[in-house]
């Protein structure tokens, strides 16, 4: 079970993301339409994954991505882009997003993307733990 922060100014999409993810997986979703509030959430509690729309008023997904990575360099962000804005998705990947998904998408797509991200997260965690143990043994 993981904790996911979903951010999209389109309320329907946000409602769907929460319903689908919580309905079809064991993850818990905190959802907000306001990216500023999202940054506030990130400062307060740890999330395993951030799902964010790219184009939002006030603060776009790129800024949120940067803010999330500044707070935690290992933070995983999947960006959601509108159809036809592949370039911005590529840019987001270059800036450290873990993955991107284009709207509208099938529910299986988002669930698989989340699954992949969660497994990656677990691998990184185990890797770090092992390194630490190795270093401990050396010293």
């Amino acid at each position: 079970m993981g904790r996911i922060l979903a951010v999209d100014d389109e309320l329907d999409m946000l409602a769907l993301l929460k319903m689908i993810i919580e309905g079809y997986s064991d993850h818990q979703v905190t959802a907000t339409n306001n990216p500023l509030e999202a940054v506030e959430f990130l400062g307060k509690e740890p999330f395993d994954l951030v799902l964010t729309d790219l184009k939002m008023p006030g603060m776009d997904g790129m800024e949120l991505l940067a803010a999330a990575r500044k707070m935690d360099e290992d933070s995983l962000v999947i960006v959601i882009t509108a159809y036809g804005s592949l370039e911005s998705a590529e840019e987001a990947m270059a800036q450290g997003a873990f993955d991107f998904i284009t709207k509208p998408f099938r529910k299986e797509q988002i669930l698989l993307a989340i699954d992949k991200a969660m497994r990656w997260r677990e691998m990184v965690r185990q890797n770090k733990e092992m390194k630490k143990r190795l270093e401990g043994e050396k010293s």
Binding site: E10, M13, K107
Partner: peptide
């Protein structure tokens, strides 16, 4: 066919 879409779409 199981797509997620919003009012914008």
């Amino acid at each position: 066919e199981g797509f997620l879409f919003d009012m914008h779409y």
